[in-house]
Design a protein around this nucleic acid. Sequence first.
DNA 1: TAAATAAATGACACCCTTGTCATATAGTCT
DNA 2: AGACTATATGACAAGGGTGTCATTTATTTA
Lengths: 207, 207
Amino acid sequence: MPTDTFHRLPAEKKQRIFQAAVQEFARCRFSEASINQIIKQAAIPRGSFYQYFAGKEDLYLYVLQEISKEKLDVYNGFTSADPELSFLEVMEQAIPAIFVWADEHDDYNKIGLRMLQDDSSFMRETISKMSDSIGIMYDVIKEDQAKGRIRRDIEAESIVDLLQMVSTALLREYFDLKDQKVVMDKIKLYFDILFQGLRAKQEAGGH
Amino acid sequence: MPTDTFHRLPAEKKQRIFQAAVQEFARCRFSEASINQIIKQAAIPRGSFYQYFAGKEDLYLYVLQEISKEKLDVYNGFTSADPELSFLEVMEQAIPAIFVWADEHDDYNKIGLRMLQDDSSFMRETISKMSDSIGIMYDVIKEDQAKGRIRRDIEAESIVDLLQMVSTALLREYFDLKDQKVVMDKIKLYFDILFQGLRAKQEAGGH
DNA sequence: TAAATAAATGACACCCTTGTCATATAGTCT
DNA sequence: AGACTATATGACAAGGGTGTCATTTATTTA
């Protein structure tokens, strides 16, 4: 919750500060991010910063909030696809698209990864408050389980958790590694293994 | 490579410094670890530290080296098991044991996890130099593939990579979370899914 | 226009960390 | 003991970061 003063600022200045913050939070973890760097980059004096934000936490939450607004649209785009497709099919289609999108928002995704690298109590709380957007997956998975497309002996919650684990690790590599093509291949392969492990067993062994 | 002076130190003092370093590197990432804290904890004066080590990197590598020595014995214990068991069976048996061992070496494992949280160039180099111990798994997996117990359409390298990904994520949770029993259950379940996805398809659908 | 309210600004005090270095102390060798 | 080498030690300078506050500059309101 930035100050009223901040909200009253001309859009250009607000944007300049937002950009500087995004850049800094993408550069390094929250705990290591420096207000000094941000105000230097945004070209605002030290005193002004504290007139706009209570501190680093305040700015960070503002940045996340702004990014969430943009992200929401993208999520909606994926979920409102053909409802006849199974969860696994949707995922198979969505994964490349998600990574393409991630490519175009390098800074935002870096911030997301940095969140996972930081284990301060502030970040734990922040992360736990953010993980709402995944809820959408549950229903689709449960439906597939009802239709006998996905193993019923595993809770949908666990499936989401495992998929998230692997996704996160892959996303991390995607940004760390030079050769992103290699990671794309990994993604296809590893999800194939996971899906194979998740698929309900067929009566007759189809080959 | 600590100084000769350090090596000539009485064992008790060396141990005191090592312990203090382990504690600090378990407390936080390398980049955030403070020499000040270490010398305070080890109760040695500032000047002495720089008489023993070139700097933080030097101390860190020394600590890793000492830990590696201890770790090696444990790895050997696991790998010299019954050679008749398949890789998946060995893993299923080893996983609980590994986590029990991890429990007893909380500090060392925290250090390991902190390594993954740190993406300085120093840490990247250090990590890449350390990942030798996994090589043992390849052979076992390849053998299982030859025997038709594991899918042949996936390279052993990839399998190790995927298993490591999930293991790392689980290990992280294991130490972050209060309720470690929950994570143990996750471990069983997720590896079950992975193994299911890795298992070579049988001709007739058993059950 | 004068008074009052809002915003901008940067010097300052304070905290933490790192690496160095001159000096003091201990140990060894002739 | 005298000389010479090996250790120990903590004060210090330098660098970076944070939050505050008295003061200046705009803006608005009466």
